[in-house]
Structures are given as structure tokens and as C-alpha cells.
């Protein structure tokens, strides 16, 4: 695997919250169209790694290269713009804006990018249909089930056509059947659009949707493909 193939590559990341190090020399690389699972016990630094990769958190040291640009050297505004344009996000909880309808929620990232409302909502509706929740468009998040909500969230992560999708325990709050459905729809859609997926999970069955896995333990990462 040569570095030039990598869509995103992180080298020697260090990040501490207070005295406890969350990342202690972690590495990571992902190619376009690849699904990589980030695994490890709770508190090992999985989420911090994801936040650093996505440019949400600036690491204390180390670099995150995305298409040759170092995220750690960017301003907050530049990183925000990158997140709006190139990345998509799915989290475990609390991610849908409760007062917006489902279609408005999905249209949100497009509108953040300046797309007009009509067009944004039209594209959002297509994605809702593709994730088999088209009939929920006019409903508010409080009126739908957890599994439906998570599919709406996946639609929202995919609607901008992101290059990288960051998913932090996307099935954590779902039962097995809904979890499977969400994973399948997410990875199918990512495959269709050639997007890379960084998938943080502690469930092996969810990780089985990945192409390979990286294990984080005590803030250090271990790429199991290179080991093998």
C-alpha cells in the first residue's frame, strides 16, 4: 500500500483531554471506496481518532492528510468548509434536529453549502426514498422510530455526495435487525458513490461490513491488515 493511494492518512496523532492522553501516537489510512472499522475497548480513543480525522478536533501533535492537505494546519473555517463539502457524519444519538422535518433534516447539509431550499429538499427526498424511508419526509424526528431516524441520518450523511463518511457507533442504539439494515444501506450507498467510510464500532458483526479493521488500544492504533 503506497501513501499516494490513500484518500486520508493520519500520522503520529497525539491528543490529551486534561492529564489523560486519548491518543498516543495513533496512525490511520484509508483509500477511496474503502470501509475501515475502528475497533477497541471503550475509552480507548476510538471516537477521538474519528474526531481528529474529521477535523472536528485538532490533535495536539501529528498530522492528518486529506488529499494531500494537512487538516491540522487549516483554520477552523477551512475545516468547517471541508466538513460541509467533503465529509458526512452519522452518530449514535441526538443528531436529528428535533424541530425540523425529516426532509429538512436531510436537506440541512446541502443548505449549509448554499443550495437553494427547493433543490436541496428535492435531493433530500431522493435519498430518503433510497434509504427506504421516503414516506417519512414530512414527519418530525419525535414521530418516527429509532431505526427510521438512523436511516434518515444516513441519508443526511450521504446527501452531499461526501468523499468520506464518518460513522460513530451508527447502530449503537438499534436492535440487530435495524442495525443490519442501516449498515447494509450505508455501505451499499458508500460503495455506489465510491465514498470511504470510517466506522467506529465495538460490535464485530457491524465491523464485518468493513473491508478491514484498525484496533485502537490505549490511544495507540494497530492496523490489522499490515500486521497480517
Amino acid at each position: 500500500m503506497s501513501t499516494t493511494d490513500n484518500l486520508m492518512e493520519a500520522v503520529d496523532l497525539h491528543k490529551a483531554y486534561g492529564p489523560t492522553p486519548a491518543l498516543d501516537g495513533a496512525e490511520f489510512a484509508i483509500r477511496a471506496g474503502e470501509v475501515v472499522a475502528v475497533m477497541g475497548p471503550s475509552g480507548s480513543g476510538k471516537s477521538t481518532l474519528l474526531h481528529c480525522l474529521a477535523g472536528i478536533v485538532r490533535p495536539d501533535s501529528g498530522s492528518v492528510l486529506y488529499r494531500g492537505r494537512d487538516l491540522t494546519a487549516m483554520s477552523d473555517a477551512e475545516r468547517s468548509a471541508l466538513r460541509r463539502g467533503e465529509f458526512g457524519f452519522v452518530f449514535q444519538f441526538g443528531q436529528l434536529v428535533p424541530e425540523l422535518t425529516c426532509v429538512e433534516n436531510v436537506a440541512l447539509p446541502l443548505r449549509l453549502n448554499g443550495t437553494r431550499r427547493k433543490e436541496a429538499e428535492a435531493r433530500a427526498s431522493e435519498w430518503l426514498a433510497r434509504l427506504e424511508v421516503g414516506e417519512l419526509a414530512g414527519k418530525r424526528p419525535g414521530e418516527i422510530s429509532g431505526g427510521q431516524g438512523q436511516r434518515v441520518a444516513v441519508a443526511r450523511a450521504l446527501v452531499t455526495g461526501p468523499r468520506v463518511i464518518f460513522a460513530d457507533e451508527p447502530t449503537g442504539a438499534l436492535d440487530s435487525l435495524n442495525g443490519e439494515r442501516v449498515m447494509r444501506l450505508l455501505t451499499d450507498a458508500a460503495r455506489d458513490t465510491d465514498a470511504a467510510v470510517v466506522l467506529v464500532t465495538h460490535e464485530t458483526r457491524v465491523a464485518a461490513y468493513s473491508d478491514r479493521e484498525v484496533v485502537v488500544r490505549d490511544g495507540k492504533s494497530r492496523d490489522m491488515e499490515r500486521v497480517a
Binding site: 468547517s80 466538513r83 460541509r84 452518530f91 434536529v97 440541512l108 447539509p109 449549509l112
Partner: peptide, 16 residues
Amino acid sequence: RKLLAVLVAFGTRRSV
């Protein structure tokens, strides 16, 4: 708070 954090992750501008 949590919702705001998610919106920030999405790259929402402060001005918005």
C-alpha cells in the same frame, strides 16, 4: 448541547 456539537461536526458556520 449535543445537537449543537453534531451541527458543528457537520461544518455549520457559527453565523448560522
